[in-house]
Design a protein around this nucleic acid. Structure first.
Length: 785
DNA sequence: GCAAGGTC
């Protein structure tokens, strides 16, 4: 009389056993798998945790060679399901042999039902006993007790719907991936596989669509009228109510009406108190988005860190849809851990309250609570337990978010002036933080105060200047990872646990890459999406996932039989396949062309110059074993030159060695290396080849200022060593441009920080024109808010 | 060597 229970994972097995056994479950190991044993109602119980899916679909052996099988065959072949985690398979057999009742107790969702059925299908080989289902949405005692008292029938429709998804995903993925990869390989050597899938392809599709919008963008000129006013001795700006004016004549007319105007009137004043609510508790999606946005940590990495933090007991389970806390959540218990250290002020404040009220969201996946800290840890403790870069930052974000959610709202006082000048209306807004509330613990979102003078209605103010500013509409920005995750979530691409992996797949395939926080499509990805878009547009859009989704939903609802859904799904895939087949030539030529171009470009990057021995091309040869410069004429020409062992190598196209005429290579960010000679710093011609980068006249003597870069700093110094120095931005790539400042004769510098727009300006701190421009930029930044 | 979904 034994009852055997299967849960989705070991952790759930342990917890459920403790609840059902009243705290006295015995842990044993069967074929390496933990099993919890206890007595309940006089009957022996055994509970085993699975590890998610323990079975998986694949094609039969004879279909595994890509070259032997027409990919289209895969659409008419049924994949077979096999046990992929054999130790679980044998443990299930051992346990089920003498069971009288089998209970499936996996998560209450589609995949959970399916995982339970995997165990059931294995158990039924050796056991004919009854199979029941325990349904629960959380691992609380009351729910578990109830679920195991009121056992229900397993839901075959639900399990089969997941089965249909698995088969259709594999059929489509395998057939399309093989077809595209093999077709393109006829014309170009591909580095790896060109994969296609119902989640990864639409994910890339979002990035592609954005790229299209950027490329198609046609900038339009517009004008805006800005007033610079002075009231009570304080300058402030106002924007003309006309906003963006697209006709020059219209802007000019307003401007000429106003340009000689010297006074204006505050025609209306409103003061409003604005409240900003704390954020909702963190579910996985929100956590990943904020990690990316605030910390620049990729979703994949953030999830991995959260997983480690969870395993080390610092934070709760990281995969959850829920953004509201259960009513019995014990906030005080957690906060007590934080009464020392970085967060103590906030923890003490909250603990002094009778009641702590979170600002709850509305999503309840009935799975796990929102991500929150479990125990307090110092930076040293967290970094010791989780040996991953940024682990502390992620933990800090989770703790701060947790506390912020419990704190009161932030309060701002927002003032708005309507200003009338010559009958034209301007608006000025300012806001002042009255009470920081949750923002005090949440430095990731810092709103800036914008100050306005204390004016009242009917006050007359000075008009210092009216500007007619020409501007241009800007193209859409590249997607950030956070925005991509939002799009995926909105269109049901992937699940909370798999979304980052689809992004990762696209990166691995060379379809897109991250540049700072934004995602940039790569040539291969763009051409592939372009080709797919012109032959099978639904593949590039989220439609493909939703078509399959609605099919399997019908299976789950019982309105469509599993075999029919499979057939219809296969027909859909076949249809797409035939479209792709029809456009094969065009697709292949496009993609092969791009791949060849990329290869040529990569090869060109390695070209160093002409071989003095034989006249052919010299190139850098970089292998796992080492690197050197060799001749393309090898093996006839055996000419080689050494290269430095460490540092990234970049051939300097604009430079040739003055000694031997062969190329100069930049090593890392550190020094230059002449092929055939060695490091330039040990060469007597160094000064001649690398004259100091002069930026302009020294403001304190008749010398010239030039850029001095050392290993850990950079600044401007004087060629006459008069002692005058000036600072330059520490961050970003810095170049001296040809443009010369009219004010002081210095060359403009160009600073390009990763993920930001390049800035060009005069860096001279002693230049009046530059000072005015800086002031103007600050003012503009303020008024833009 | 193909997918996506669980979990470790």
């Amino acid at each position: 009389m034994t009852t055997v229970v299967f849960t989705e994972k070991n952790k759930a097995a342990a917890q459920i056993s403790n609840i059902l056994a009243g705290g006295s479950a015995r842990r044993t190991i069967v074929d390496g798998v933990p099993v919890y044993e206890f007595q309940r109602n006089g009957v022996p119980w055994k509970v085993m945790g699975l590890a998610g899916h323990i079975m998986g679909y694949d094609y039969p052996e004879e279909f595994s060679n890509w070259r032997d099988v027409d990919p289209a065959m895969l659409l008419d072949t049924e994949p077979i399901k096999k046990v992929t985690k054999t130790q679980f398979g044998s443990a299930i057999l051992k346990l089920s042999k003498d069971a009288d009742l089998l209970v499936l107790a996996c998560d209450f969702d589609r995949e959970g039902e399916n995982i339970g059925f995997e165990a059931k299908s294995i158990a039924e080989k050796v056991s004919g006993s009854t199979v029941k289902r325990a349904r629960f949405s959380s691992l609380s005692k009351s729910e578990i007790d109830k679920a195991f008292t009121d056992l229900v029938e397993p839901d075959e429709n639900m399990a089969m719907s997941a089965e249909a998804r698995q088969i259709l995903d594999l059929k489509m993925g395998a057939a399309f991936t093989r077809f595209v990869t093999l077709s393109v390989r006829e014309r170009a050597r591909t580095k790896g596989v060109l994969s296609i899938g119902p989640c990864q392809t639409p994910t890339c599709g979002f990035v592609y669509e954005r790229e299209l919008a950027i490329r198609k963008f046609d900038p339009k000129d517009f004008w805006k009228i800005e007033g610079i006013f002075n009231g009570k001795g304080t300058d402030f700006t106002g924007a003309h109510r006309g906003g963006h004016i697209y006709e020059k004549e219209k802007a000019d007319a307003i401007f000429s009406k106003l340009k000689n105007c010297r006074t204006a009137v505050v025609s209306k004043k409103t003061v409003k108190e604005m409240k900003t609510n704390p954020p909702f508790p963190l579910n996985t999606n929100e956590f990943l988005k904020r990690s990316s946005k605030y910390l620049g940590v990729s979703p994949e990495q953030a999830l991995e860190i959260a997983e480690q933090l969870y395993l080390s007991g610092f934070t709760s389970y990281p995969r959850t849809e829920t953004n509201k806390y259960a009513d019995d959540m014990d906030f005080k218990k957690i906060l007590k851990g934080f009464t020392r250290g970085d967060y103590q002020d906030f923890a003490m404040l909250l603990l002094s309250q009778d009641k702590i009220t979170p600002r709850n969201g509305k999503k309840d996946g009935h799975d796990h609570p929102p991500i929150h800290p479990i125990k307090a840890g110092s930076r040293a403790e967290v970094e010791k337990a989780v040996k991953m870069p940024r682990a502390w930052d992620v933990y800090d974000l989770i703790v701060r978010h947790f506390i912020a959610n419990l704190l009161p709202e932030a309060i701002f006082e927002k003032t708005r002036f309507e200003i009338t000048a010559e009958g034209e209306l301007f608006d000025s807004t300012g806001s002042v933080q009255k009470s920081a509330g949750w923002l005090a613990v949440y430095p990731f979102e810092k709103p800036q105060d914008k100050l306005l003078p204390l004016l009242e209605e009917k006050d007359v103010i000075d008009v210092k200047k009216i500007n007619n500013i020409k501007s241009q509409t800007t193209p859409p920005k590249r997607l950030t990872e956070a925005e991509l995750l939002t799009l995926m979530d909105k269109h049901g691409i992937g699940t909370k646990a798999t979304a980052p992996s689809h992004i990762e797949t696209n990166k691995k395939r060379g379809y897109f890459e991250t540049k700072g926080k934004t995602i940039a499509i790569m040539d291969t990805g763009f051409t592939l999406m372009d080709a797919l878009n012109s032959s099978v547009p639904i593949l590039v859009k989220p439609d493909i996932r939703s078509r399959i989704e609605s099919l399997i939903q019908e299976v789950e609802d019982g309105t469509k039989k599993f075999p029919l859904a499979l057939e219809e799904g296969t027909t859909l895939i076949k249809e797409m396949y035939s479209h792709l087949l029809k456009n094969r030539e065009l697709m292949v030529s496009q993609i092969a062309g791009t791949i060849t171009d990329e290869a040529v470009a990569a090869d060109k990057k390695n070209h160093v110059g002409t071989c003095p021995e034989c006249g052919r091309m010299l190139r850098m040869v970089i292998t796992d074993k080492g690197r050197f410069v060799g001749c393309t004429g090898y093996p006839q020409c055996k000419n080689t030159y050494p290269l430095p062992k460490a540092g990234a190598l970049a051939v300097q196209r604009s430079r040739k060695c003055k000694k031997d005429g062969i190329a100069v290579i930049k090593v890392g960010n550190k020094y230059f290396w002449s092929v055939g000679i060695g490091p330039c710093f040990s060469c007597e011609k160094e000064k001649e080849c690398f004259p100091p980068e002069v930026i302009g006249p020294c403001p304190s003597c008749d010398g010239q200022m030039f850029l001095i870069a050392t290993k850990d700093s950079r600044f401007l110094g004087c060629t006459k060593r008069c002692g005058h120095t000036q600072s330059v931005p520490k961050k970003g790539r810095l170049t001296v441009t040809d443009k010369v400042c009219e004010g002081c004769g210095w060359h403009f510098i160009r600073v390009k920080e990763q993920g930001k727009d390049a800035k060009e300006y005069c860096a001279n701190r002693k230049c009046e024109a530059a000072a005015a421009a800086r002031k103007d930029a600050i003012r503009k930044a303020r008024t833009r808010e």
